[in-house]
Simulated scan of single mutants.
Amino acid sequence: MTTTPKASRAALARDRLLRAATDELAETGELEVAAVARRAGVSVGLPYRYFATRSGLLIAVLDAFYERLGQAAALRVYDAATWADRERRRVRDWVTALYAEPLAPLVLGGLVGDAEVAAANTRHLHLLIELGARNIAQAQRAGELPDDRDPELLAAATLGGTNTMLSVALSRTPRPSAEKVITELWTAVRGTVGLPS
Protein backbone atom coordinates (compact mmCIF):
# COMPACT_ATOMS: atom_id res chain seq x y z
CA MET A 1 0.00 0.00 0.00
CA THR A 2 1.37 3.40 -0.96
CA THR A 3 0.64 6.51 1.02
CA THR A 4 0.29 9.98 -0.38
CA PRO A 5 2.62 12.48 1.28
CA LYS A 6 0.85 15.09 3.38
CA ALA A 7 1.91 17.89 1.02
CA SER A 8 0.41 16.06 -1.95
CA ARG A 9 -2.85 15.48 -0.09
CA ALA A 10 -2.92 19.16 0.82
CA ALA A 11 -2.30 20.17 -2.80
CA LEU A 12 -5.08 17.85 -3.96
CA ALA A 13 -7.49 19.25 -1.38
CA ARG A 14 -6.59 22.81 -2.36
CA ASP A 15 -7.09 22.01 -6.06
CA ARG A 16 -10.45 20.36 -5.33
CA LEU A 17 -11.56 23.47 -3.45
CA LEU A 18 -10.41 25.72 -6.29
CA ARG A 19 -12.32 23.64 -8.84
CA ALA A 20 -15.42 23.71 -6.64
CA ALA A 21 -15.12 27.48 -6.17
CA THR A 22 -14.68 28.00 -9.92
CA ASP A 23 -17.73 25.85 -10.68
CA GLU A 24 -19.82 27.55 -8.00
CA LEU A 25 -18.90 31.01 -9.23
CA ALA A 26 -19.45 30.12 -12.90
CA GLU A 27 -22.85 28.54 -12.23
CA THR A 28 -24.28 30.96 -9.67
CA GLY A 29 -22.26 34.16 -10.03
CA GLU A 30 -21.77 34.03 -6.26
CA LEU A 31 -19.08 32.63 -4.02
CA GLU A 32 -20.28 31.45 -0.65
CA VAL A 33 -17.66 29.46 1.23
CA ALA A 34 -20.22 27.01 2.63
CA ALA A 35 -21.51 26.26 -0.88
CA VAL A 36 -17.95 25.69 -2.10
CA ALA A 37 -17.29 23.30 0.79
CA ARG A 38 -20.50 21.36 0.04
CA ARG A 39 -19.62 21.16 -3.65
CA ALA A 40 -16.11 19.92 -2.79
CA GLY A 41 -17.46 17.46 -0.22
CA VAL A 42 -15.41 18.87 2.65
CA SER A 43 -16.08 20.54 5.97
CA VAL A 44 -17.06 24.22 5.96
CA GLY A 45 -13.84 25.07 7.78
CA LEU A 46 -11.44 23.51 5.26
CA PRO A 47 -11.55 26.37 2.70
CA TYR A 48 -10.51 28.76 5.47
CA ARG A 49 -7.53 26.53 6.27
CA TYR A 50 -6.19 26.94 2.72
CA PHE A 51 -7.41 30.42 1.78
CA ALA A 52 -7.99 32.17 5.16
CA THR A 53 -10.94 34.26 3.94
CA ARG A 54 -13.60 34.40 1.25
CA SER A 55 -11.48 37.08 -0.43
CA GLY A 56 -8.46 34.77 -0.31
CA LEU A 57 -10.49 32.09 -2.05
CA LEU A 58 -11.72 34.56 -4.70
CA ILE A 59 -8.16 35.74 -5.31
CA ALA A 60 -6.99 32.14 -5.74
CA VAL A 61 -9.77 31.58 -8.29
CA LEU A 62 -8.74 34.78 -10.08
CA ASP A 63 -5.07 33.74 -10.04
CA ALA A 64 -5.98 30.38 -11.58
CA PHE A 65 -8.08 32.13 -14.26
CA TYR A 66 -5.16 34.34 -15.29
CA GLU A 67 -2.78 31.38 -15.19
CA ARG A 68 -5.01 29.55 -17.68
CA LEU A 69 -5.17 32.65 -19.88
CA GLY A 70 -1.40 32.98 -19.70
CA GLN A 71 -0.87 29.39 -20.81
CA ALA A 72 -3.44 29.70 -23.60
CA ALA A 73 -2.29 33.01 -25.06
CA ALA A 74 -0.68 35.74 -22.98
CA LEU A 75 2.59 33.97 -22.19
CA ARG A 76 2.86 31.89 -25.34
CA VAL A 77 5.79 32.35 -27.65
CA TYR A 78 4.67 32.17 -31.26
CA ASP A 79 6.95 31.03 -34.06
CA ALA A 80 6.12 33.32 -36.96
CA ALA A 81 8.17 35.64 -39.13
CA THR A 82 6.40 38.89 -38.29
CA TRP A 83 4.90 40.60 -35.28
CA ALA A 84 1.56 40.77 -37.11
CA ASP A 85 1.52 37.03 -37.74
CA ARG A 86 2.43 36.24 -34.13
CA GLU A 87 -0.14 38.62 -32.67
CA ARG A 88 -2.90 37.49 -35.01
CA ARG A 89 -2.35 33.98 -33.59
CA ARG A 90 -2.35 35.36 -30.05
CA VAL A 91 -5.68 37.13 -30.68
CA ARG A 92 -7.14 33.87 -32.01
CA ASP A 93 -5.90 31.91 -28.99
CA TRP A 94 -7.04 34.64 -26.57
CA VAL A 95 -10.59 34.68 -27.92
CA THR A 96 -10.74 30.89 -28.18
CA ALA A 97 -9.56 30.51 -24.57
CA LEU A 98 -12.01 33.05 -23.18
CA TYR A 99 -14.92 31.65 -25.17
CA ALA A 100 -14.21 28.29 -23.52
CA GLU A 101 -13.59 29.76 -20.05
CA PRO A 102 -16.65 29.61 -17.77
CA LEU A 103 -15.37 32.48 -15.60
CA ALA A 104 -14.60 34.86 -18.48
CA PRO A 105 -17.95 36.70 -18.41
CA LEU A 106 -17.61 37.31 -14.66
CA VAL A 107 -13.96 38.32 -14.64
CA LEU A 108 -14.17 40.53 -17.72
CA GLY A 109 -17.47 41.99 -16.52
CA GLY A 110 -16.00 43.01 -13.16
CA LEU A 111 -15.73 40.15 -10.69
CA VAL A 112 -17.51 41.19 -7.51
CA GLY A 113 -15.32 41.27 -4.46
CA ASP A 114 -13.79 43.57 -1.92
CA ALA A 115 -10.82 45.92 -2.33
CA GLU A 116 -8.38 43.04 -1.87
CA VAL A 117 -9.92 41.14 -4.81
CA ALA A 118 -10.00 44.29 -6.95
CA ALA A 119 -6.32 44.92 -6.16
CA ALA A 120 -5.44 41.36 -7.18
CA ASN A 121 -7.26 41.80 -10.48
CA THR A 122 -5.48 45.11 -11.07
CA ARG A 123 -2.10 43.42 -10.43
CA HIS A 124 -2.90 40.83 -13.09
CA LEU A 125 -3.96 43.50 -15.57
CA HIS A 126 -0.78 45.48 -14.95
CA LEU A 127 1.32 42.37 -15.56
CA LEU A 128 -0.50 41.79 -18.85
CA ILE A 129 0.06 45.43 -19.81
CA GLU A 130 3.76 45.09 -18.96
CA LEU A 131 4.03 42.00 -21.17
CA GLY A 132 2.19 43.76 -23.96
CA ALA A 133 4.37 46.87 -23.67
CA ARG A 134 7.56 44.81 -23.98
CA ASN A 135 6.08 43.01 -26.98
CA ILE A 136 5.09 46.28 -28.69
CA ALA A 137 8.44 47.94 -27.89
CA GLN A 138 10.25 44.98 -29.45
CA ALA A 139 8.15 45.34 -32.62
CA GLN A 140 8.88 49.07 -32.64
CA ARG A 141 12.64 48.44 -32.39
CA ALA A 142 12.35 45.94 -35.26
CA GLY A 143 10.60 48.58 -37.39
CA GLU A 144 7.34 46.61 -37.58
CA LEU A 145 5.33 49.20 -35.65
CA PRO A 146 5.60 53.01 -35.55
CA ASP A 147 8.06 53.98 -32.84
CA ASP A 148 6.52 57.38 -32.04
CA ARG A 149 3.89 55.90 -29.69
CA ASP A 150 4.14 54.90 -26.04
CA PRO A 151 4.22 51.06 -25.86
CA GLU A 152 2.73 50.91 -22.36
CA LEU A 153 -0.23 53.12 -23.29
CA LEU A 154 -0.76 51.09 -26.48
CA ALA A 155 -0.69 47.86 -24.47
CA ALA A 156 -3.20 49.29 -21.97
CA ALA A 157 -5.50 50.44 -24.78
CA THR A 158 -5.23 47.08 -26.53
CA LEU A 159 -5.94 45.09 -23.37
CA GLY A 160 -8.78 47.37 -22.29
CA GLY A 161 -10.39 47.20 -25.71
CA THR A 162 -9.91 43.45 -25.89
CA ASN A 163 -11.46 42.85 -22.49
CA THR A 164 -14.39 45.17 -23.17
CA MET A 165 -15.08 43.69 -26.60
CA LEU A 166 -15.01 40.16 -25.20
CA SER A 167 -17.14 41.11 -22.20
CA VAL A 168 -19.82 42.41 -24.57
CA ALA A 169 -19.56 39.39 -26.88
CA LEU A 170 -19.76 36.92 -23.99
CA SER A 171 -22.83 38.63 -22.53
CA ARG A 172 -24.85 38.49 -25.74
CA THR A 173 -27.51 35.89 -26.42
CA PRO A 174 -26.72 34.34 -28.75
CA ARG A 175 -23.02 35.00 -28.63
CA PRO A 176 -21.40 36.11 -31.87
CA SER A 177 -19.17 33.42 -33.31
CA ALA A 178 -15.64 33.34 -32.00
CA GLU A 179 -14.46 33.75 -35.60
CA LYS A 180 -16.37 37.03 -35.95
CA VAL A 181 -14.94 38.34 -32.68
CA ILE A 182 -11.42 37.31 -33.71
CA THR A 183 -11.78 39.23 -36.97
CA GLU A 184 -13.22 42.34 -35.28
CA LEU A 185 -10.65 42.24 -32.49
CA TRP A 186 -7.70 41.88 -34.85
CA THR A 187 -8.95 44.89 -36.83
CA ALA A 188 -9.13 46.90 -33.58
CA VAL A 189 -5.66 45.78 -32.44
CA ARG A 190 -4.13 46.66 -35.82
CA GLY A 191 -5.62 50.14 -35.66
CA THR A 192 -4.67 50.72 -32.04
CA VAL A 193 -0.98 49.91 -32.47
CA GLY A 194 -0.73 51.58 -35.89
CA LEU A 195 0.21 48.46 -37.81
CA PRO A 196 0.90 49.47 -41.40
CA SER A 197 -1.23 47.83 -44.07
Rank of each mutant, 00 (worst) to 15 (best):
A115P: 14
R86F: 01
H126P: 05
E87C: 04
L106Q: 13
E101N: 06
A97V: 08
A100V: 10
G113F: 02
V91G: 00
R123H: 07
L125H: 12
E116V: 11
R89C: 07
R92G: 03
G110Q: 09
L108D: 03
R123S: 11
E101Y: 00
L111H: 02
V91M: 01
A97E: 10
L106V: 13
G110E: 10
G109N: 07
L103H: 08
R92I: 03
R86E: 12
L108G: 02
L108Y: 01
P102H: 00
Y99D: 12
P105E: 12
A115M: 13
W94C: 05
N121I: 00
A104C: 12
T122I: 11
A100G: 14
L128E: 15
G113T: 08
A118T: 13
N121Y: 10
T122G: 05
H126K: 12
V91Y: 01
V117R: 03
R123N: 09
V112N: 13
H126F: 06
L108N: 03
L127A: 15
A118V: 14
L111K: 03
D93A: 12
Y99M: 11
A100W: 02
A115K: 13
A97K: 06
L111R: 04
P105A: 10
G113E: 07
L108I: 09
E87S: 09
L103S: 09
A115L: 14
A100F: 01
V107K: 00
W94T: 10
A118W: 02
A97F: 00
D114I: 09
L128V: 12
V91H: 00
R92N: 04
W94D: 06
G110V: 09
A100S: 14
N121V: 05
R90M: 11
L106W: 06
L108S: 06
E101V: 08
V91N: 01
R123D: 14
E116G: 11
R90N: 10
R88F: 01
E87N: 14
R90W: 05
R86A: 06
L106Y: 03
G110K: 06
L106G: 06
R86G: 03
H126C: 07
A120R: 01
R89Q: 14
V95N: 02
E87I: 05
V112A: 15
A120I: 03
R92V: 07
R90C: 09
G109Y: 01
R88C: 02
Y99T: 12
V117F: 00
V107T: 05
L125C: 07
N121F: 08
G110T: 07
A97Q: 10
A120S: 03
E87H: 13
A97L: 08
L125D: 11
L98A: 12
R88I: 00
R88Q: 08
Y99W: 13
L125I: 13
A120H: 01
R89N: 04
A118Y: 01
G113R: 04
A120W: 04
A120F: 00
R92Y: 04
L127V: 14
L103A: 09
A115F: 07
T122P: 05
E87Y: 10
N121D: 15
R123Y: 02
A119W: 02
E101I: 04
P102Q: 05
P102L: 00
L125R: 13
T96C: 07
D93G: 08
A118E: 12
R92K: 08
R89P: 10
H126G: 12
A120K: 03
V117G: 04
L127H: 13
Y99Q: 11
V91P: 01
Y99F: 15
T96A: 15
H124E: 07
H126T: 10
L103N: 08
P102N: 08
